[in-house]
């Protein structure tokens, strides 16, 4: 089957509820003579409005997977359809466009612009959308209000606590109203109370119909979603409904 047929087929599929379809995705790193198989044949389908958690021990390939899912990184092999589009065929600028329009990425290490205020950070994705400064500011303030950070808008990232930074990162991901929200260890740096607050926010977003993909290594965080996918050494070892017993 040629890739054109594939993408036509995928477009049909995109019209129903499938948002992400991955087929045998691999990511290999060559380290001298050794080959690190960070991802080793991942096949998965994720529907619109789903809340899927990826879980696995450190080094199992969760971040690598999320980067490919977020069109930040390209796989070494396999096929990836996002919203019916065959991602491998896209150029750097088209990927940038997808990252801007379709994807809200919340990084494991926040990745905020150090010299911009909380407000400036949230406004940044909108710069690439030809939105006027005033409108950008309004939208960013609205997003910060949603994460209840409207009283820290003029603070630089290094003047914010870890939880506040996490919320700035979430606001930045939300402000573009993406089709998918990707979050890498959103509670990893937080105490349990702040973590619970963030999870509450995710739950609310989910109920509003937001597609959510979460990476975590905490079982109870993963359990909040609809579906839990377990990774080990770059392979899916389990794909179950949340709340199903482990054994």
């Amino acid at each position: 089957m040629s890739s054109v047929d594939e993408s036509a087929a995928a477009k049909d599929a995109g019209e129903d509820s499938v948002l992400i379809r991955m087929q045998d995705i691999r990511k290999h790193y060559e380290m001298g003579s050794q080959i690190v198989r960070a991802l080793d044949g991942i096949s998965v389908e994720i529907g619109r409005g789903d809340w899927v958690s990826f879980i696995g021990s450190s080094g199992s390939g969760k971040s690598t997977f999320l980067n490919i899912l977020g069109c930040l990184d390209r796989p070494s092999g396999g096929e990836y359809f996002l919203n019916g589009v065959y991602v491998e065929e896209l150029g750097a600028n088209q990927l940038a466009e997808i990252r801007n329009r379709e994807i809200g990425f919340i990084f494991q290490s926040f990745n905020l612009l150090p010299r911009a205020t909380a407000l400036g950070n949230v406004m940044q994705p909108l710069v690439y959308r030809r939105i006027s400064y005033r409108r950008r500011k309004e939208m960013a303030m609205e997003a910060l209000r949603r994460v209840r950070l409207d009283d820290r808008m003029d603070h630089l990232p290094n003047q914010l606590s870890g939880g506040q930074r996490q919320r700035v990162a979430i606001a930045r991901a939300l402000v573009t109203e993406p089709s998918i929200l990707l979050a890498d260890e959103p509670t990893g740096n937080l105490d349990s109370r702040t973590g619970a607050e963030i999870m509450q926010l995710f739950d609310q977003l989910h109920r509003e119909g937001q597609t959510l993909i979460l990476v975590t290594h905490e079982e109870d965080v993963a359990g909040l979603g609809d579906r839990v996918i377990e990774l080990l050494d770059g392979k899916i070892i389990r794909d179950r409904r949340a709340g199903e017993p482990l054994h």
């Binding site: 750097a92 600028n93 940038a96 990745n111 690439y128």
Partner: peptide, 16 residues
């Protein structure tokens, strides 16, 4: 470099 990476991650194209 990291700042550039962040901008690209949130949608900056080459010409930006």
């Amino acid at each position: 470099t990291r700042e550039i990476g962040i901008c690209k991650a949130v949608g900056a194209k080459r010409h930006h």
